[in-house]
Each structure stands twice: as structure tokens, then as C-alpha cells.
Design a protein around this nucleic acid. Structure first.
Lengths: 183, 183
DNA sequence: ACACAAGGAGACCGATTTGTCTACCATATA
DNA sequence: TATATGGTAGACAAATCGGTCTCCTTGTGT
């Protein structure tokens, strides 16, 4: 990708994730990145296109981080432990590449762009599906019900960590899942 | 509450919940409610005040609905069943007073107003705390871990129902919780 | 009957929004 | 050296934002 385009995408993601997509104007992105307005519209046809680009970038970073976090898991127990420990590190700002925790960018974006950009919501759904698929691919024995529960608890933990500031939300899920798998 | 003020609050809530707080302007609320701008600013000092009013109104409606949904529960098993069945009805638009399902208004508001209005986020946290307390008050035997899990699964179900359009998310939680309590 | 309060309609303000356009500059390549 | 490319800086447009204000009408209580 072009250097300026990449810079614009990263800058926009930072601002969108921190302050909300609708609260950040194009001019703010330009000022923060030091890029001219014409250059932005040379690479993106509209602000919506820039938003989609930030979603794609965040998706790649997030999936890369998650893939690495789960890489060494060989059993369902390990998968669960690695996953929710990784979430805890994310919540507590111990994962630099995900930047300061502000909830799930895709949940936030879906909430902000409701009835405004169908494309955004579609991409958020796609992201959640990809994450689920990645988790499933690390399961030794496929257990659809366990997969459902892992994903539900994951979403709940992210939301609780963000809205209720319960930074230990992910840790609370672990004993529960462990005791289920031991049966 | 004053009639016009109440009308404004309900109209604003409808629009905010459906299209997002930041996507809906004051003028749109005025047009939809047929109220004059001066009347709005006679009752609310700013748009932020109107937003808070919609949060309070939604909070009251939601808690009233939840209280009624849990009223007949006498055991922890019944509490869980009533709660997640109620959520399923909500997701599937079978609860008129909650209007067409668009996720949790408070999660959405928190996502939209990040780094913009601290008061909004504080109220969203308050709401989540009140809901947790209501659930706790219906527990026959206090089990803090069970309470954590119920709340985490509830948040996860709401998010999954909204973002991933999994309208059966709440139902998936039931067998798990039941089997846990049977132990 | 009169005074006062509340609301309606909407002009208006300044700031900000996304997006376009012009003018100019730097660099690289033929 | 000539030209094309891709950048900067920023004026500008049209719309919209939240918010204030004036003018006029419609009650309502005394």
C-alpha cells in the first residue's frame, strides 16, 4: 500500500478508535497526519472509504495478534486459557499493537454507523465471523456448543471490560469453561 | 414531567436508538416531534442534557420490563430461564415497549460518546450496575460467580444478537447455566 | 378583561462538516 | 532539459451542526 495511504489509515484508526468515528472529522485526521486534503481524496473516494480502510487494517492487526496468541495451543483447554489470558492482556493495555483499550472497534463502529452505512455493519459481522473461525480452527475436537459459549463469553468480557470497566472480566470466564471441559 | 418535555425525550430516544446519537441532529428531533426549537431549549440546556434524559427514560423502561420479566422467579433456575427467555423475546421484537431491537442503547451510547461526554459513560455504567443488582436481588442463594457469569453471558448475547444477528444467542446460554446449577 | 406564561415558526449566527478546486512545488525519469 | 507525477497549502462551496433570538399566537388564572 502507498505510504501516505497507509499513514492516513493508521492515523484515522487511532482517532476513530479513541474518540469515535462520527466525532472525528476529516480535517482532524489531516492535521494529525500532516497530509494534504487532496492527497486523502486521491486515495479515498469518501470518508466512508477511509472508515472501511481502518476497519480492514484493524481486522488484520487483531487477527494477527489473536493468531499468535493461540499459536501454541494444542488442546481445547489450552485454547481457552490462551484466548482469555490474551483478552486480559488486551484489556490491561499490555498489547502495544492493539493500542490503548477502548472496547471492540467493530462493536463501536457498528453502534455508530447504524442506519448510516450498511457496509460498515457488514464488515463488522465479517470480522466477528473470522474471529470465530480462527478460534474454531484451533479446537482439537470440534464442539459447536463450546465454540458458541467461548464466543459469547468473549463478547461479554469485552463489553464488560469497556462499559463497566471490569478489567478482570475475561479471567472470570476461565474457571467456568475449564470445569465444563473437564466433564 | 411536562408533556412537551416527555414527547421530546421519547422522540429523541426513538431516533437516537435507531440511528445513533451522533447521527441525529436537534432539528431532526424537532421535526419528528413537531415541537419548536425554543421549547426544546426551554426544557433542556443542551443536546447533552437531552441525551441524558433519553438514557434515564430508557433505563426506567428497561428496568421496569426486566423486573416484570423476573417477577415470578423463585429459584436460581427460574431466574436464569426467565431472564434469557426475556432477552430472546427482546431480540426477536416481541417486546413492544423496548421498540425494535438495535442492541443495547447504553453500550451504543458509550461507544458513541467516548472521549466526548464523560457523563454519558458514567450513566451507562450506572445502568449496567442497576441491572446486575436487580438480577442479584432475584437470586435465592447468592452466588457471586454465577452472577458474574449471568451478566457476562447477557452482555455477550446482546452483542452477538446485534452485531452478528444471532437472534438465538440468549437461548444458547441456557443449557450451560442450567447444567452448572444442577451440580 | 387583563396579564403573563408557554409554545410555534423560523430567521439567524458562528462553527464545523465533507468534499472540490486552484496554484504551486519537488522529484524522478525519459 | 522537459515532462509527468504526486505531493502541499489552503481557499472555497454547500450543507448541517448546536444554539440564540424575535415575533406572534394561544391559552389560562385571577
Amino acid at each position: 500500500m502507498n505510504e501516505k495511504k497507509h499513514l492516513l489509515t493508521m492515523t484515522a484508526l487511532d482517532l476513530f478508535y479513541k474518540n469515535g468515528i462520527n466525532s472525528v472529522g476529516i480535517n482532524e485526521v489531516l492535521k494529525a497526519s500532516g497530509v494534504a486534503k487532496k492527497t486523502l481524496y486521491n486515495h479515498f473516494v469518501s470518508k466512508d472509504a477511509l472508515i472501511i480502510a481502518t476497519l480492514e487494517y484493524r481486522h488484520n492487526v487483531f487477527l494477527h495478534w489473536l493468531k499468535q496468541s493461540l499459536a501454541n495451543s494444542t488442546t481445547n483447554e489450552e485454547l481457552v486459557r490462551y484466548l482469555f489470558n490474551a483478552l486480559t492482556r488486551w484489556f490491561n493495555n499490555e498489547v502495544p499493537e492493539l493500542t490503548s483499550f477502548n472496547g471492540c472497534f467493530f462493536i463501536n463502529a457498528a453502534a455508530e454507523c447504524a442506519g448510516q452505512s450498511e457496509e460498515v455493519i457488514t464488515y463488522c459481522r465479517f470480522h466477528k465471523g473470522q474471529v470465530r473461525q480462527l478460534i474454531a480452527s484451533h479446537m482439537q475436537t470440534i464442539d459447536e456448543q463450546l465454540l458458541d459459549m467461548i464466543c459469547l463469553l468473549k463478547e461479554g468480557a469485552i463489553t464488560s471490560a469497556y462499559v463497566s470497566q471490569d478489567l478482570q472480566a475475561a479471567q472470570k470466564c476461565l474457571p467456568w469453561l475449564m470445569s465444563y471441559m473437564k466433564k
